[in-house]
Amino acid sequence: MIEIRNISKWYGSFRVLTDCSTSVAKGEVVVVCGPSGSGKSTLIKCVNGLETFQQGEVVVSGVSVGAKGTDLPKLRARIGMVFQNFELFPHLSVMENLTLAQVRVLGRTVEEATAKGAALLERVGLAAQAPKFPGQLSGGQQQRVAIARALAMDPIAMLFDEPTSALDPEMINEVLDVMVDLAKDGMTMMVVTHEMGFARKVAHRVLFMDKGEIVEDAPKEDFFGRPRSERAQQFLSKILHH
């Protein structure tokens, strides 16, 4: 489904990604972790072309993301993305947030889009919030709306960039629960997160990044059982011991 082949990226002379390769199969959940600044966000944004890269290739469902002739909007419409800071559109109501791209990109009628939006709000437990504005919701609610917004496009895969790290602790679980449900439903997911509980529960594989490199790419059991690299071991002991 998602193939990342030997991609490298530089900001000027600073190398953010070094020869990164991995893949996410259909229905697979891959968790990406690593210290701050290691390039996790950059890597995940290369998948839907929000970031460009100078070397290598990313192929999503047979389409090469970086290639010249690629219709990026069309590709992105099929890949859902959830951001650390939610990025709901504050000037639009919750329902309008859910319908905007359905109508403008997929060409659905407003009625269709609204029905779809209502069903997804129901699914994330926020049916009553449809007419409100994002600013009137809690962080956890906003992030659930953001997930619903991405799902409204019927994505073939979902990308999450630290979806819970801007949340107050008591709201983390309501978002993780939605993500666990999604994973159990067979959604293909690439998730940047430090929530190792989530990784343990639903991930198939865990990637560990450091300084722009994918240092470890292992099935969950191996990663938590006996990480091979020193750096991954240190990282794990740090985040698991508090």
């Binding site: 839907n48 929000l50 990026l72 909007p73 069309k74 590709l75 992105r76 419409a77 099929r78 890949i79 859902g80 993305m81 951001f83 800071n85 990025e87 709901l88 559109f89 905007l100 791209a101 403008r104 990109v105 997929l106 917004r149 991405a150 496009m153």
Partner: peptide, 16 residues
């Protein structure tokens, strides 16, 4: 910037 990124991620084009 994240606002525009969110729009692009949904498949909207530059003008949209």
């Amino acid at each position: 910037k994240g606002q525009a990124a969110a729009g692009f991620a949904l498949g909207l084009d530059y003008w949209q």
